[in-house]
Design a protein around this nucleic acid. Structure first.
Lengths: 249, 249
DNA sequence: ATGCTTAGTTATCAGCGTTCACTTAGTGGT
DNA sequence: ACCACTAAGTGAACGCTGATAACTAAGCAT
């Protein structure tokens, strides 16, 4: 066993990459329903049953694509975060948030895959791989949130203003994830995420066009409000480049 | 021309109703991708091409379903609103909001149809019928918002806290719809809707389950916060029935 | 060189939206 | 009452989809 990767293994990895690459391209071109085994195989110069050597079913391939998308958006957020000094926590949170929106707007179909309505015939795998990827995504925001709180606690809402049932659920969630924050801070975290999700999802799904031509300005305004809640407005600054010029491959 | 509806016309209307009814049932059972002309025809004891006498294409039928869903949710909201005294504006807004969430949670697939990611192969009709239905939906919230403002103006955010580009867009939107509110109030309206949309969409799409078991308590807490913004907290009251027992056919 | 594993093929099945040619049933005019 | 017209519905066909079974060819280790 000199090399773990034989000639055949390397060829296999390359084929898997080609499948996912073509699948991603067709996904963005045709939309969520455009992931078709036969179309992928055709473009690869293969026949459809051959793909079953690499994925047990279409759902398995979709799961792989979703995991890749998680990886992409998380990487984009982490890179944006790490491009700033480690002690500029507020700026880091802003950068990660903007990276989240930029990726989402640039990849609307993939965003729907991760954060939208469940796919028509798709059945989530029971292994928990998707949950793990989701937790990693949430972790980027949560870690920054916790660090900002640890550095300089911000004012928290009164617990009496939170529905008692929600307090219970939040306490369970908090206990599940280590629980170093007061429950009202956990509430604030969830509430902030809901607001950011709402702004981005509405824009990406095109559900805000009845009022606005574009979503970037709304997002920035929302981000500024969230910054106020967390006491990091002094680290708020307009994004380095106009939102439409960002993004990439 | 004694009767506008001949025997054949009545039969046709009945058939259209049966088509939509079966389509709705299959939609809720199988999901968004479950709208299949052949399956509908089979259940009706017909063949698929026969359905083309009633809808020019599958997309046309989907459009009809979406319009029906708009009608349903708007009716639910209006009924909840009108069940309360006309001068209890805050209570009316709360009732309409809760009706919106109740319908959405009870009809997750239909919610995705209206407010989620665009359907895979579906092409929106260019006539503007969907836009009109959407405008009617937004009108329920907007009218209540305007009335509440007219009765007792609530504190508005400073215009300097809003992105100038957003102010421009909001002013255009405001002018388009009559424009009797200051632009900062229009912003508040949009921001409130984004927050409510976020909370409901996350719950309906199951994207909050990593933290919470259920979404009703979060929604109530969010609703209470929005009530504070609009100065109608004294009209806030817990919903008449537990949120899980509501809903219906 | 032999034997096992993997990659990929063809053939086939059931289901999908859509079109075309055709039959049947209902409607209005004379 | 009859005739012409229209709408409703059928059956066959085309090309697309995911999936399975049986089979061939290539890679690899012993």
């Amino acid at each position: 066993m000199v090399a773990e990767t034989s000639r055949r293994d390397r060829h296999r990895e390359q084929t898997v990459g080609e499948i996912k690459q073509i699948a991603r391209r067709q996904l963005t071109e045709v939309g969520t329903g455009g992931i078709a085994l036969r179309a992928i195989a055709r473009e690869m110069g293969m026949t459809a049953p051959g793909l079953y050597r690499y994925y047990a079913s279409l759902d398995d391939l979709i799961t792989a694509l979703i995991l890749d998308c998680y990886e992409e958006v998380v990487t984009a957020m982490e890179q944006a975060r790490d491009a700033l000094p480690a002690d500029s926590l507020g700026a880091r949170l802003h950068a990660a948030s903007r990276a989240f929106r930029t990726w989402s707007v640039g990849h609307p179909v993939e965003f729907g895959l991760i954060f939208g309505a469940p796919l028509p015939g798709y059945a989530r795998p029971p292994e928990g791989a998707l949950e793990q990827a989701g937790a990693r995504f949430a972790g980027v925001f949560r870690d920054l949130f916790v660090q900002i709180w640890a550095r300089r606690p911000f004012p928290l809402p009164d617990e009496s203003s939170i529905d008692p049932r929600l307090v219970e659920q939040l306490e369970r969630y908090s206990a599940r994830t280590g629980g170093r924050l007061p429950v009202t801070a956990v509430y604030l975290f969830v509430a902030c995420w809901v607001r950011m999700y709402g702004a981005v999802a509405m824009e990406v799904f095109g559900r805000i066009r009845w009022a606005l031509e574009e979503g970037g300005a709304l997002f920035e305004t929302e981000l500024r409000q969230l910054a106020e809640l967390l006491g990091i407005t002094e680290e708020y600054a307009l994004p380095p480049a106009p939102s439409s010029a960002a993004g990439g491959a």
